[in-house]
Structures are given as C-alpha cells and as structure tokens.
Design a binder for these strands. Structure first.
Lengths: 270, 270
DNA sequence: TCATGTGAAAAGATTCACAGCA
DNA sequence: TGCTGTGAATCTTTTCACATGA
C-alpha cells in the first residue's frame, strides 16, 4: 500500500469556520422552504427551529457571512437565500460524475436532489463492459476507459465514488489525475489524495455503529453498568430494555452528549 | 416539553468524547483489515495512517478506552478489535428496519456492509401497497400498516428512514412511538424527536454543497491568491495562518465581497 | 531503546448575555 | 420594543511534547 498522502488539515477556507460551512446547506434548505411558501421575513429563532439548531448559533454563523439581518425584524428570506447560495457556490453549475453504477450508484443517479441545486450529473461511469450504453436514470452508462476524456470534456471537478471498496482508491487516483479536486466517497474505505483535493465520505456502517454505541449506552443506563464488561450480560440488558415503549413528547432536538465525567474504567489487557 | 425525565446524570463509566466515538468505527475497520491479513500487532503510527488520522489523535482516543497497548511495541490487533467492538456495542446483534424501499432503500437493503458487523435487516417496510410482498434483497417488503408490530416483535431499536422527505417525520414519529430510539435519516429533512432518541442524518446534497463551497474557494485561489490583500475581516484568519506551518491550501481569502467588519452588503432587493 | 499514554497548551466551536439599532 | 450582531466565557477537540514503562 502506502500511497503516501493522507488527510490534510485544510480547514479555514475564508473567514468562515468549517462548522459553519457545514450548516449553511441546512439553513439554505429551511429558507428555500420558507421562500416557496412566500414567507417574506424570518427571525433567527424561527429559522433556527426550522433548521434544527439554536438561534445563538445561527446568528453567530450568519455573522461570519456579514450583516444580512435587520434588528428588531429578522432576515429577508429571498435575500438570505441568495447570499447563502452565492457563498456556497451554488450560483454556478457544477457538473458531477458518478463512478460505480451498482445499486447505490443507480439510486444516486436517480436522486432528484442532485439536479435541483446547482449540481448536474454529467456522466455515469462503470467498469463493467456489459453496462456500457445501458440507460440508468435516462442516461447511458459510459465505460471507465473513457473516464479521463469525460472529465476533461465536461470540465468536471466533483466526482462521486460509489464503487466497491476495492476499486475506490484506483478510481480516486484516476479522477484526481484527470483534474477532479473534490470527491464524495460512498465506498467504505479511506482514500488517499494529494493536498488540495477535498474528500468527504458517506458511510452507512459507520453511522450505524455510532448509533449502536449510544444505543448500548441507553440500555445500560437503566439497569446495570457493570454489565458492559460481559457481552452476554449486556445483551440481556438490551433486550430487557427493548420493550420499554417511550412516551412521546413534542419538541425536537438533535443529538446530544451528556454524562461528562471520565474516571478510570479499564479492564486489563491480556 | 419535559416529560419528567431529563437525561440522567449517569456519571459513571467512561465519558468518551463524541469525536472519539465517531472515529472508533474507522479504527475498527482498519484493524479488521489487519486482522484478516493476520498482522499480530500494530503501532499507533501505522494504524493511524490506515485509518486516515494522525497518531497523536489515535493515541488520545484509545486512552479514553483504557490502556490497551504495550509501550515500545504497539497494540495487539485481535485484542483491540475485540475491545472496540465491545465498546461500540457490536458484540451484540442489532435488528434494523428500513422504511421506504425506493431506489435508495433498495440499495441500502442490498448493501452488504449491513449484515457484516452486528447489524441485521429485520424488515423492509414501504407505504406502497403494490410493493407489499415483493422481494427486495431476498426479503419480502412489508406494509407500513404493520410497522408497530414489526418493531415490537423483532425488538428493533434502530430504524433507517429512506422515504421521501414529506413522509419522513410521520414515519419517524411512528418508529419512536413503537420503541425505536436510534434513527438514521436519509430523507433531506430535519426530524424532531423526543429527548433520548438519537438521530443521525446522511444527506447527499448537503455533502455536495460543502464540497462546492471549497471548490469555489479553490477556483478563486488561483486568480486572487497571489495578490490576496487580507481583508480587514480576516483577523482571526491571519493569526491562525501565522501559526499553521506548512499548510498548503492557503486560505483563499482573496475573495472579498463584504466582510463581518460591518461594511454594507451588496444589492439584491427584497 | 522505542512507542504508548497523558498532562498541558492551543485551536476551534458553542453558548451566554447584552449593547445597539431599526 | 424586539431582534440582530458580537465580545467574552465556556466547553470541546486537537496538537504538543515528554515522562513512563515494557
């Protein structure tokens, strides 16, 4: 292995903190919904609720973009939609290629949200010769052999990888060599890329594992804690807690971590 | 709306930071690969490289779990695989339901990584009567009417939502009422859930928008970078840049529309 | 000798709380 | 009066650097 390059810090893009950038799409979505309902203005409190964050955070986020609100009133919806779109680079069109047209790749190709906001699927690419020419989402699949020319002919700078894990790095290398500088990786593998190339990953099993961690914690919370050491016991605990149907109650909240503290646990190694 | 119980202090076992929890699956994957190649031990440096993080972070992460390494040697691969699996709750089996068997739902159902590590697809559920009984990934799709009984009969505590955005909240409410306490949401919408329920979201268009943001930044960098007159707004940026050593990527502060420093935005009427 | 484990420092993100302006 | 915008305080995460122990 050893393809050299690993991740890179690469944060601070312009003055805007990375955490803020990651929330802008959320605000944009909420604003777009308001816009469609012809709501003219919105307060930080309302918008924050719609986006699932708290208002102080939202105001702080917006303060990095500039002063786009009106004190005592709120934000002009249309204006904010425009400003955030511009900040995110959505006022231009981004051609995207999807490499790996299996179940997932096909689902992505069919996903409407793609085209809606500034992104356009320029090509679907797969290594299987049998797929070449076959239409998926109204588009003929092209063979990997033509990857380089497709990228350059269409001026593609964003690539989506939905190949099996084993093929991902190779595909990634070819995409990068052909000029792609942003990659969205659905393959369950770590990609090595040179500096200047951004990679974001979407990984189903990682998300599930994080949920399982918290789930296990919840189960243990109600009953014993020491059970955590003994797998078989933890299982019984989990099952016991499974039927405790929760009482619903309005008010949403995202996720949250609690239980500070951090004393010594430890089970000695073998 | 407080239904009495706030989060229990639960000030007991390890207070593992959320950021660390999110990386454990990454380490586990890398370790599993090493295990398959029968590698007996690994150093923090090697493992970190395989997981795409730096070694200091990895060691700090592991220190929250306990002292599982051997100074001067490294970590025992098998032992670590076990410890992390246990910590993540993967030594038990988690039945999962997938609600919304469209393109994406079907792709998820077919996704192998699901079953591999502690997760088992207990049922596929869809609201379309025409789909009921139809096999997807070797499993008959069941109708939404039976959602509650499916959840309780199988002791499901983790649900995956891959419905259209419009149906997601309703499905979420039913899952939660039926006892699900962890949700992985693929629908492009913010879900409201009561305290105690975890939601994680996977959102293609958000990821693309984040990439577009950085991509736009890169494009501007080529042109403006050289002459980049740091806008007065970039005080924080300047300080950070002074410290970060060889970070390529610069900070593309060339683009200077307006800034947080109070000058007036552009045009754009209401 | 060598790589872990960890205090301490630095950087980053969130929350508080209120001044300031429409 | 009401809501934005933002310094300051707080909390979290990352990085540093080295004592520690196999």
């Amino acid at each position: 292995m050893a393809t050299g390059r690993t991740h890179r810090p690469a944060t601070r893009s312009r003055g805007i903190p990375e955490a803020t950038v990651a929330r802008l799409p959320l605000y944009l979505r909420a604003l777009t919904a308001l816009s469609e309902r012809s709501v003219p203005t919105v307060s930080s409190e309302e918008l924050a609720a719609a986006a699932g964050v708290n208002s102080a955070k939202l105001r702080k986020d917006f303060s990095y973009l500039g002063s786009y609100g009106t004190r005592g009133v709120g934000y002009d919806v249309e204006y904010l939609v425009y400003q955030i779109s511009r900040e995110l680079g959505l006022t231009q069109d981004w051609p995207v290629v999807i490499v790996g047209i299996g179940n997932l790749g096909a689902a992505l190709a069919n996903y409407g949200g793609f085209a809606s906001r500034g992104f356009r699927v320029a090509a679907l690419i797969d290594a299987d010769p049998a797929m070449a020419g076959q239409p998926v989402a109204g588009m003929p699949v092209q063979h990997t052999d033509d990857l380089e020319s497709i990228i350059s002919d269409n001026g593609v700078s964003i690539g989506v990888i939905s190949t099996p894990a084993g093929a991902a790095q190779q595909v990634c290398d070819r995409l990068v060599a052909a000029g792609v500088t942003s990659i969205l990786n659905f393959a369950p593998t770590v990609l090595s890329v040179p500096d200047g190339v951004d990679v974001r990953k979407v990984d189903l099993s990682i998300e599930l594992q994080i949920l399982a961690f918290h789930e296990q914690r919840k189960a243990g919370e109600d009953v014993a804690e020491a059970a955590a050491v003994v797998p078989s016991a933890a299982r019984a605990v989990a099952e016991a807690a499974a039927d405790s149907s929760a009482s619903v109650d309005g008010d949403g909240s995202g996720d949250s971590r609690k239980g500070p503290d951090g004393d010594v646990p430890a089970v000695m190694p073998a």
